[in-house]
Design a protein around this nucleic acid. Structure first.
Lengths: 235, 235
DNA sequence: CTCATGGTTCGGTTATGATCGAAGCATGAA
DNA sequence: TTCATGCTTCGATCATAACCGAACCATGAG
């Protein structure tokens, strides 16, 4: 007697500890890479890749390619809802909380993404520019008239940027903040300004360490306020 | 990184076809014996017994001994809710609907979800009650003052329902309609009324077959109009 | 170009668990 | 008592799939 869709195949996907851990890591809506998910699940990258293929085939997760990375996210809120419900059921038997690994705080605060600023400061930058109406759009970003004037004043040769093949503004997905930050020619220019004025320096990794004065100057230059900063994810 | 209870062990239980079939057979809220569940799952009694032991240990099902028989039922409405939600996921992800036929159509029209009404009629019921302002809220449903009066008039002891531990109104996601229908103590009461007044009868599956007169009486009793019925889902 | 890195695919090993036969209990009927 | 039925436990078989090493592919950096 077949009744409705067969739940077993889907449930079996959720029933493997490695896959369940990966999905749990994606529960907050962020998009994570294969490597990060592999670490979260405690398996090698090959194994994680195989698991993610199955999850993607079942449309439980969706993937976006970005440069050399592949970012996975839950395919929709309904998936998270089912996971939530399953946690409720699991609590009856016994609630288990898994270990939490502290990540590099500096990387999350500010880092270089290819050639532009990412991390918390990068997200705050885009938030602030959008709030002031200097850039517009959601994922397809554009420089407004006010924005052109602002950056022109700032000493950026906007006309030259617009002549190039590369998009002036590009929304780049942030792995640490799960929000968009500013890429493109303008993003690269801003990073070069930050480095040039020695507001911060790049250490050996991709982390960008702001000086105390530099951070203040950065915030003032782009008129960023505390409301632009993404909420601190709980440790 | 915040982690909740580990879902993998529970999901793994649901991930076995034999166990999933047994749980599906219990979805109508009745209690079945080991033999019946073994037949429903297509396995021998020994195998079924082993599965049921695991399900009982995880508190997904509860057992009652009666003479030489042992009756198993779902341990609660929340289990049924998770199963329904999983069916929704399974369908959305392009699940293999093994057999589609008249039985499937009947299930979509009206069926029993644990102890309340689901399917097209169940969705229409909640729509109508919400349209009339008898129940309020989106996912967190509540009975309005008018609603209390309405059901009181109807012969429902609302005060008694409110005294119980179980929520009076509960929104349950429908796998066939992808809409919410009414669960909770009130939902269960309404189903019992439908059966009691012989507006419809339960067949051997979860389907609930309305009589022609019964359907009219049902619609009239809850003042449902055609606008309350969900649009026919395409293909 | 070369090198490094992120990710996928393949193959072989291993372990978990689903399954059923057979035997063992328990309950109720004769 | 003896027998029958409903169910559980034990033991052995067997299939699935999780896992990792190694090789391979693609992209970006230098």
């Amino acid at each position: 007697m077949k009744e409705g869709p067969a739940i077993a195949p889907v449930a079996a996907l959720l029933g493997d500890p490695a896959r369940a851990n990966m999905l749990g890591a994606l529960m907050d809506g962020r998009a994570l890479t294969v490597s990060e998910l592999a670490e979260a699940a405690g398996v090698t990258i090959q194994t994680a890749s195989g698991h993610l293929s199955k999850l993607e085939a079942a449309r439980l997760v969706a993937a976006e390619k970005q440069g050399r990375h592949r970012y996975f996210r839950l395919s929709g809120p309904d998936v998270a809802q089912v996971l939530e419900a399953l946690m409720g059921l699991a609590q009856r038997t016994g609630a288990i909380r898994v270990r939490t690994g502290p990540k590099d705080a500096a990387l999350r605060a500010a880092r270089v993404c290819y050639d532009h600023l990412a991390g918390e400061r990068g997200v705050a930058l885009l938030n602030g520019l959008a709030r002031q109406g200097l850039v517009t759009g959601e994922t397809e970003l554009a420089l407004s008239e006010e924005g052109r004037a602002f950056f022109q004043c700032f000493g950026v040769d906007v006309a030259r940027l617009e002549k190039g093949r590369r998009p002036v503004c590009r929304a780049c997905l942030d792995w640490s903040e799960r929000r968009l930050h500013l890429g493109g020619a303008l993003g690269a220019t801003i990073l070069s300004i930050v480095v040039e004025r020695q507001w911060g320096r790049r250490d050996e990794s991709r982390a960008l360490v702001f000086t105390c004065d530099g951070l203040a100057a950065f915030n003032q230059a782009f008129r960023l306020t505390s409301e632009d900063s993404p909420e601190r994810s709980l440790a």
